[in-house]
């Protein structure tokens, strides 16, 4: 498969949920509580795609399929896009765009704070994702982008906190995230000693 084709296939797959949602909104097919459908669906995809982003490097390491690496930034930016849409829908539908009401919600409710913190992190990561920024930040870029893990953890926490009674789905996402973190820790622990020295220097 040509490299560009693979890239655009992944791009289309990540864009599809948004397209389906927009189509359902256009045709009035969002159900009795359309705002809730939009909010829940956008939030779910933001988290799902974020966790998919975190799976890219482990998949490359385990399978040796290096080409997958070229989609990582793009997939990550899609996660940010859904998260931003999720926030804007919340701001407009739940708070009618009232910034003070949103701020009050953030400071009063850990449930909202957890989601907002994840969004702030994703915003920083998106802003530092262009190649020029990667060059400019040098080694600091890696440090900044490790915050993707706290963002994903906050995303899972926010999802679980939002449930009224049943947290099975966020638990599944949390399990997948835990597994991906474990793979990273295992890779870190198992790397050659010489490199450890290099990093601590």
């Amino acid at each position: 498969m040509p490299a560009r084709l693979f890239y655009w296939l992944v791009f289309a797959a990540a864009a599809a949920p948004g397209g389906v949602l927009a189509w359902r909104a256009w045709t009035g097919d969002l159900g009795v509580n359309p705002a809730e459908t939009l909010l829940h669906t956008s939030g779910r995809w933001a988290l799902g795609i974020l966790i998919a982003t975190l799976a890219v490097t482990p998949i490359r390491r385990l399978t040796g399929w290096n080409r997958i690496q070229q989609v990582r930034r793009m997939v990550g930016l899609w996660s940010f896009t859904y998260a931003l849409a999720h926030f804007l829908l919340y701001a407009v539908f739940n708070h009618l765009g009232d910034i003070r009401a949103i701020w009050a919600d953030v400071v009063e409710r850990p449930f909202i704070l957890s989601g907002m913190a994840a969004l702030v992190i994703l915003t920083v990561l998106a802003a530092t994702s262009p190649a020029a920024m990667v060059r400019r930040l040098g080694r600091r870029w890696r440090t900044i982008h490790r915050f993707v893990y706290p963002a994903a953890v906050l995303g899972v926490v926010h999802f679980a906190w939002g449930q009224k009674a049943d947290i099975r789905e966020p638990l599944v996402w949390g399990g997948v995230l835990g597994l991906l973190l474990l793979v990273r820790v295992a890779a870190w622990a198992g790397r050659p000693a010489s490199r450890q020295v290099e990093v601590t220097r």
Binding site: V32, N33, A35, R109, I112
Partner: peptide, 20 residues
């Protein structure tokens, strides 16, 4: 008296999009 996780000050009168 808000629910711990959301305000009860306004409501969404379905099928309205806005909690107005």
């Amino acid at each position: 008296v808000p629910h711990p996780r959301w305000s009860q000050a306004r409501e969404r009168r379905l099928p309205d999009f806005f909690a107005r």
